[in-house]
Design a protein around this nucleic acid. Structure first.
Length: 529
DNA sequence: AAAAAAC
């Protein structure tokens, strides 16, 4: 594209793109007049029925660049039962739901538009009913889509427009075989394909060669890989979880003047859970988001965070890309991401739409090589916030190596692999929180679908617990935290985790019945504000 | 080395 064309396009308004009056009016009502570069580039071609290869990061207005032309094109024709007219594939459930919201928003003048969202973790029947009724727009994650299809509830040969969104992320997640299968189910002669990816690794290029016909390539210049409006800092910490949690708390407090809301990224789901619990204990206004959580909790957390009912969101990389969370003032990396690109995506959650943002990455001595990779990728030496690792004060916590030789010999009564791992983690967790003398915990295990336990086990535990609770509604005064085993005897007579949980649940008995029956207490806690 | 995604 020449620079003249570029300038000409910047002067464009949505009214110049060829969208239908209904769509245009919804766009205007939403307060938009000038399309973003990807929208200006893709919409006219999409309206003409051409295949489009859009290379754009999230936050560039990519979603509207396919939603708007699709709505326009859907005005002609009607959907037949079980034969959706369009299909949009998304890598995560949240993204799929987000696209649905866009269709609702811009499709408000299309009262007859049927939208079906096929994602995992929610009821099958409702989705099936929508399919039966005939969907104009089908938005799906690959797993659930294939599930419906295998049950014979879905025919894909009537699909007129196929959208593959976040293709590079699909690749990362191992979805490419699924995507290929799905593409092959849709007749290529009658199909228009819109394909979006932030980057074009060889596998993705191959995919586009296979499934796109003479695509129009629309590339949006990458926003400087890590936006210059983001202030990035490194924060030293000891290597232990309690060191890192303390460093984070200190940081949040120090930033409290500027901190409007923040996402705190962890590398692992268990860490999300642990950190979330810890923050709640310290009375921070925090929520959690990761893929093992109950789908309703995921949605609710995200909604609360977006609506400003929740200040801190502790999340796995499920939240790193694509989620449209406007106006996050801070991003904290509780862990240095193992993949350098993830760093870019994570901190890209702040400093959006030209606003300024701050990111802090907690670094321990174990993170050197990941940090080096990040600095290499971004071509940037990230400054230390308050002295580098050489100034870390030694932790007062337990020795690095787990102590042995106390209690029963290790061989006796050895637990299975999973249990042993969990036990170890809990031990360090408990210990970690000891020195700080935290206020009593909100019990999260009782309700959170995010504990590192099989779902079934969890449900079972809650069910039996509820039964027990009913049987004994009244109970003697609870022991206080100070009566619990202390620092040095935590290896010995520590009450069983489930015992602790049970007591805690009895303490804040709130009538929570179990998954799916009631809103988890931790969500209520966060919603209180 | 981790997350995500199907019952």
């Amino acid at each position: 594209m020449s620079s003249e064309e570029q300038t000409a396009q910047e002067a464009l308004t949505f009214a110049d793109l060829g969208l239908s009056p209904k769509v245009l009016s919804a766009v205007t009502d939403a307060g938009y007049t000038v399309p973003t570069p990807i929208q200006a580039g893709a919409i006219p071609h999409a309206l003409q029925g051409k295949d489009v290869l859009g290379i754009a990061q999230t936050g560039t207005g990519k979603t509207a660049s396919f939603v708007l032309p699709m709505l326009t094109r859907l005005e002609k024709g009607r959907a037949r039962a079980r034969m959706p007219r369009t299909l949009i594939l998304e890598p995560t459930r949240e993204l799929a739901a987000q696209v649905e919201e866009n269709f609702v928003k811009y499709g408000k003048n299309h009262p007859k538009l049927n939208i079906a969202l096929l994602i995992g973790g929610v009821s099958f029947d409702e989705q099936d009913k929508k399919l039966e009724r005939g969907a104009d727009v089908l938005i799906a994650t690959p797993g659930r889509l294939l599930d419906h299809r295998e049950r014979g509830k879905l025919l894909l040969n009537g699909v007129e427009i196929l959208v593959i969104d976040e293709a590079d992320r699909m690749l990362d997640m191992g979805f490419i075989p699924d995507i290929e299968r799905i593409c092959e189910m849709i007749p290529s002669l009658t199909r228009q394909t819109l394909f979006f990816s932030a980057t074009m690794p060889p596998e993705i290029t191959k995919l586009t060669e296979k499934f796109l016909h003479a695509p129009v390539r629309v590339e949006v210049s990458k926003a400087a890989s890590t936006g210059t409006n983001i202030t990035q800092r490194l924060v030293k910490s000891g290597p232990k979880p309690w060191d890192k949690r303390a460093a984070l708390r200190e940081l949040i407090n120090a930033e409290s003047g500027e901190l409007k809301n923040a996402i705190i990224f962890c590398n692992r789901k268990v860490e999300v859970s642990e950190l979330f619990r810890s923050l709640i204990k310290y009375d921070f206004d925090a929520g959690a988001l990761h893929g093992d959580m109950d789908q309703r909790a995921r949605m609710q957390m995200l909604a609360n965070f977006r609506d400003g009912k929740l200040k801190l969101l502790v999340a796995s990389d499920v939240a790193a890309r694509g989620l449209d969370i406007p106006d996050v003032s801070h991003v904290f990396n509780y862990d240095v991401p193992i993949h350098a690109e993830d760093y870019v995506h994570r901190i890209g959650r702040t400093g959006r739409a030209g606003r300024s943002g701050k990111s802090f990455t907690i670094v321990t001595k174990n993170d050197a090589k990941y940090l080096a990779a990040i600095e290499k990728l971004t071509g940037l030496k990230i400054e230390w916030h308050d002295g580098d690792l050489s100034t870390v004060v030694a932790s007062e916590g337990e020795d690095e190596a787990p102590r042995r030789g106390r209690g029963a010999p290790r061989r006796a009564g050895r637990k299975d692999e999973g249990e042993r791992k969990r036990g170890g983690r809990e031990r360090s967790q408990r210990h970690a929180e000891k020195p700080a003398r935290e206020p009593e915990a909100v019990d999260i295990d009782a309700v959170a679908a995010d504990a590192p336990v099989e779902k079934r086990e969890r449900k079972e535990a809650i069910r039996s617990d509820n039964a027990e609770r009913k049987a004994r509604p009244e109970r003697a005064e609870q022991p206080r935290r100070d009566d619990r085993p202390r620092r040095d005897d935590h290896r010995g007579g520590r009450p069983d985790r489930s015992e602790q949980n049970r007591r805690q649940r009895e303490q804040d008995d709130d009538g929570t019945v179990g998954f799916g029956d009631d809103m988890p207490a931790f969500m209520r806690v966060s919603a209180k504000v």
